[in-house]
Lab assay of single mutants.
Amino acid sequence: MGTYKLILNGKTLKGETTTEAVDAATAEKVFKQYANDNGVDGEWTYDDATKTFTVTE
């Protein structure tokens, strides 16, 4: 398990959240659902060194 971070750079929603997941693929699924639930759809990037996903609208 590891802690993964999501940085939201949406047009109307900005912020950060974290999740505990077994791997990056699992964290990505959780974060994409979170972003979708909050109406954020954009370009995704992932930094393996910091376990950080970023979505920018």
Score class of each variant (00 low, 15 high):
L8G: 02
N38K: 14
G15F: 10
D47C: 05
K51Q: 08
M1W: 13
E57L: 05
E57T: 04
N36L: 14
N9C: 05
T18K: 11
N36A: 08
G42W: 04
N9T: 15
A35P: 01
M1H: 08
L8R: 02
E28R: 06
F31L: 07
E43L: 09
T19A: 08
V55D: 01
A49V: 13
T17W: 14
T56E: 09
T17D: 04
T52K: 04
Y4F: 10
T12N: 09
K14P: 06
K29R: 13
T17P: 02
G42V: 02
T50I: 07
K29C: 04
G10Q: 04
A21F: 04
N36C: 04
T19Y: 13
Y4K: 00
N9G: 04
K5E: 03
G10I: 13
K14S: 15
T3A: 09
N36Q: 13
D41V: 10
Q33F: 05
N36R: 12
D37K: 10
V55H: 01
T17A: 14
D48R: 09
T26P: 02
T12F: 15
T52Q: 05
E20V: 11
A24W: 12
E16P: 03
K51H: 09
E57D: 11
N36M: 13
K11D: 14
I7G: 02
D47W: 04
T18Y: 12
G39Y: 07
Y4I: 01
T18E: 08
T52L: 05
Q33A: 13
L13A: 06
Q33K: 09
L6H: 01
Y34H: 05
V22N: 13
Y4N: 01
K51P: 00
V40H: 04
F53H: 02
I7Q: 05
E28T: 04
E57S: 05
D37A: 13
G39M: 12
T26E: 07
A21Q: 12
A24V: 14
A21K: 03
T56C: 05
G39P: 02
T52E: 05
V55C: 05
Q33E: 09
L6I: 04
T26F: 14
L8M: 14
T17H: 13
G2F: 12
K29W: 10
V30F: 13
G10H: 10
T19Q: 07
T18G: 04
K32V: 08
D23I: 02
G10A: 13
K29P: 03
E20K: 09
Q33C: 05
D48W: 14
N9A: 09
T3C: 06
V22Y: 12
T19V: 09
G15W: 15
L13P: 03
W44D: 00
L6E: 00
L6Y: 01
E20H: 10
L6F: 07
V55M: 06
K11G: 10
T18P: 02
M1P: 15
K14W: 12
Q33M: 07
K51I: 02
K51E: 04
N36G: 06
V40E: 03
F31S: 00
E16F: 09
N38F: 14
V40C: 05
A25N: 10
T12Y: 15
N36P: 02
E20C: 04
W44G: 00
K32I: 09
T12M: 12
T18M: 10
N36E: 07
E28C: 06
A35M: 06
E20W: 09
L13Q: 06
T26M: 08
G2Y: 11
E16I: 05
F53T: 01
V22M: 09
V30S: 07
E43A: 10
T45P: 00
T19W: 10
N9W: 07
W44R: 00
N38D: 03
V55Y: 02
A27P: 00
L13S: 13
Y4E: 00
L8E: 02
T19M: 13
A35R: 01
T54L: 07
G10T: 09
Y34E: 02
T52P: 00
T54F: 05
Y46M: 02
E20M: 14
D47E: 09
K14V: 14
D48T: 14
Y46E: 00
K29T: 08
T19C: 05
L8T: 05
V40T: 04
L13Y: 14
D37Y: 10
N9V: 07
G42P: 01
F31I: 01
T54W: 06
K11F: 09
V22T: 11
E43Q: 11
E28Y: 13
K5Y: 09
G39Q: 13
T18W: 07
D23A: 04
E43N: 14
E16A: 08
T56S: 11
G39W: 08
E43W: 08
L13V: 13
G15D: 12
F31C: 02
Q33S: 15
Q33L: 07
K32N: 05
N36H: 13
E16V: 07
T52S: 06
E20S: 15
A25M: 12
E16G: 04
E16M: 05
F53L: 01
M1T: 14
V40I: 15
A27Y: 00
V55T: 03
E28D: 05
T3H: 11
T56H: 08
E28V: 15
D41I: 12
A24F: 15
D23H: 05
A25I: 13
T50F: 06
A21S: 08
V22S: 12
V22W: 14
K51S: 10
D23F: 03
M1D: 14
D23N: 12
E28S: 08
D48Q: 11
K29M: 14
K5F: 05
A24Q: 09
G39I: 04
N36S: 11
F53V: 01
F53Q: 00
A24Y: 11
F53S: 00
T19R: 05
E16W: 14
E43F: 10
W44Y: 02
K32A: 07
I7R: 06
T3R: 09
T17C: 05
E28W: 15
E16C: 05
V55F: 08
V30Y: 11
Y46C: 01
A27D: 00
D41R: 07
G10S: 10
L8P: 01
L8H: 04
L6S: 00
T26K: 06
T26Y: 10
